[in-house]
Design a protein around this nucleic acid. Sequence first.
DNA 1: ATCGTTGCCTGAGGGC
DNA 2: TGCCCTCAGGCAACGA
Length: 281
Amino acid sequence: MVRLRLSELIVNRTVAGVRAAESNYVFLSPPEQLKTRLLGRRFLEILRHGKYLLLALDDHSRLLVHLGMTGQLFTSSALSPRLHNARSQPKPNANGAFTPDQHTHLTLSFTDNRAQLHYRDCRKFGKLLWLPQGASDPRLERLGVDALAVTATTLYKALSSRSVPVKSCLLDQSVLAGVGNIYADEALFQARVAPLRPARSVNYEQAKILTQAIRRVLKKAILRGGSTIDDYVHPDGSEGQFQNSFSVYGREGKACPRCRTPIQRVVIGQRSSHFCPKCQC
DNA sequence: ATCGTTGCCTGAGGGC
DNA sequence: TGCCCTCAGGCAACGA
């Protein structure tokens, strides 16, 4: 969804100015290099693999972007309380528009003088990396097949060799790229598979159902514009709506939408996991 | 090859 | 009021 909306906002625009923060945890490329390499470049298209965005430039270099948990990519015309009142409270300027604060790591302005693009991440879990023409990165090379393209056979093979909980496998980006904590819980619920089950105990038929559930959950989430909990916003400042459709995630103690049994929460691999103890086995 | 743990990072919220 | 603690989680790196 970010890819789609961002495409509308920056494809075919040419960078006229780059403001980068001091070197910090989000900069895998030195800020000075980003300034030099992005200036004067035009965006051709935006691609996505798993949770990574690839912004293709007209010199065939690419800007790799990961939003982490709290990363925000949006334009200066975006108006959202998520930008003005959420974490760290950046203040709107006199026009009510966003002005870069201490968490805004990169700002691009364009030759058409229309809205700027900001990259903001208060927890610095996101990443920015400039890739020369033809270059890749281990982060990309390691990724498994994109979750929206996964087949039952691929998922079954990946699960069958592992003893860890199936939930941990779904979160492993080298197995399946693009599934995060929320969507893993929701997909396991849809497929009626308990998150703690050893991955290798999932048979082919169940892997097939799980594959379909993953695709369905992700597609529905994209359709609803993603999940806004604390920080997530679209490039235009609007918010996702999928958080209103959660069946299990964040619903500990509340009724399972299928059988009314209270949803349970357990910690798996340091991640909170939510499931229905009756429906999922 | 697989597995479990730790560190990175900031803000919110709870307890005292 | 203020201080300390825990929690949120995507991912790399490490040792076993």
